[in-house]
Design a protein around this nucleic acid. Sequence first.
DNA 1: ATCTCATTTTGATAAATCTGGAAATAAGAA
DNA 2: TTCTTATTTCCAGATTTATCAAAATGAGAT
Lengths: 114, 114
Amino acid sequence: MKADAAIDALGALAQEHRLALFRLLVQAGEGGLAAGVIAETLGVPNSSLSFHLAQLREAGLVLQERQHRSIIYRANYPAMNALVAYLLENCCAGAAACGPDAACETPAQERKSA
Amino acid sequence: MKADAAIDALGALAQEHRLALFRLLVQAGEGGLAAGVIAETLGVPNSSLSFHLAQLREAGLVLQERQHRSIIYRANYPAMNALVAYLLENCCAGAAACGPDAACETPAQERKSA
DNA sequence: ATCTCATTTTGATAAATCTGGAAATAAGAA
DNA sequence: TTCTTATTTCCAGATTTATCAAAATGAGAT
C-alpha cells in the first residue's frame, strides 16, 4: 500500500457518519447492506449518505453491487487489512523493546502479508 | 475506545505529513525522535511540523517529553492498538464467512483486549 | 410506455483544515 | 545576565470538506 491510498482510507474513516457506516458494514459481514437500510439505520439524509458512501468507495474501503432495485454495500476486508499493515510496518525497527502493548507483536507482523 | 476518540485519531493520521511522521515514530521505537530531527527528516517547516505534532498529540497517538533542550516525541503504541481494535470490533458478527482476508481472524480478535 | 421506488448528482452555503513566515516562549550554555 | 538553540504560538489567506433540499438517473414493476 502506498501513502496516498492510506491517506485516502484514513480520511474516509475520519468522519462521524462514515466511521459508523464502515463499522456497520464490517459487522454486517459479507452479506452487506442496501444504501437505504444504512441511511435509515444511521438517521442520515439520503443525499448525505450517498456522498459518504462515495467517499468510502473511492477510498477502496467498501464495495458496491446492484441487487434488484437496491445497491448493496459491503466492507472491503482486504483493504482494511492492508491499511492496518501499513500503519504497523517496520514497527519498532523489529526491536524486542516493543513490549506487549506495542501493537507490533507477532499477529501484527503477520498482518503485513494480508 | 469511543467513536470521538477514533475519529480524532483517524483524522490525525489522514494527512500526508502526519502519516509520514507517525510512521517514522512507529518505526523509531520507544526511543522516539526530537521535533527538530523530525522536521529535517520530513522536510517540513518548523511551524508546520509543530502544528502536526500537536494534532497527533491531541489525538493521543504520540507522547511528548522534554529532554534537555529538545522535545522528544514517540508513538503511543497502546493507543494505536486500541484504534485498530475499534475498527475490527465485532467483525462479521463472528461468522466464519469472514474468510482468510477478512481482517477479523483470530489475531484481530485478540487485539480487542489490547 | 408509464409508474414507482432506490439512489445519485447538483449546487450553494457553512465550517474546518493546511500552510509558513514572523514573533514569542523555554531552557541550557557562556 | 546575555547568548544561542529548540520549539511553539500567532496570524492571514488558500484549500478542502460537510450538509441537504431539489432535480436527475437507473432499474424493476404494471
